[in-house]
């Protein structure tokens, strides 16, 4: 599935919620159902240091697609990580680099996008794009 198809599906899912409580219940559910990262990847090098919650992000590249796994000590942050992984994992570096993250505004998670919140969401997106750029460069050099 293309990234835009996933992100518009996410936006539709969130449109079903009338109030914030339902939205957060869903995010929490997503957080709890995030496939756990392999413990060996929960290391300092994979840690995205935010002010409020810790996030680990691990990336693997098979030469064509990048696969992400993540974890956080906060459930809401895990829910957000789940949305990002669903959108960007299993995609090519170029598609990830070309993609927009506007859907996070559309689903009303802007409060988590504020840099002052420092919950790791902005850093997670930045890190995902960094991995894409790094693997794209690596692939180009390999050729």
């Amino acid at each position: 599935m293309k990234i835009e198809e996933t992100t518009s599906a996410i936006v539709s899912e969130f449109e079903n919620f009338d109030d914030w409580m339902d939205k957060y219940n869903y995010l929490i559910e997503l957080g709890k159902s995030l496939p756990l990262i392999d413990e060996k990847y929960k290391v300092e090098a994979n840690l995205i240091q935010g002010c409020q919650s810790r996030v680990w992000l691990h990336a693997e590249f098979d030469g064509n697609l990048i696969y992400f796994t993540a974890d956080s000590d906060a459930v809401i942050t895990k829910g957000i990580a789940n949305l990002l992984i669903r959108s960007f994992s299993g995609q090519t570096p170029q598609d990830i680099l070309d993609s927009s993250t506007d859907f996070l505004n559309d689903i009303g998670l802007t409060e988590h996008l504020s840099p002052t919140r420092s919950n790791g969401m902005l850093s997670m997106i930045k890190q995902i794009k960094m991995y894409a750029l790094a693997f794209k460069t690596k692939a180009a050099m390999g050729n």
Binding site: Y24, I28, Q52, S53, D73, A74, V75, I76, T77, E111, N119
Partner: peptide, 10 residues
């Protein structure tokens, strides 16, 4: 987690 609690309290 305090962050989770804080988000709901907000």
């Amino acid at each position: 987690h305090p962050y989770d609690a804080g988000t709901i309290i907000d």
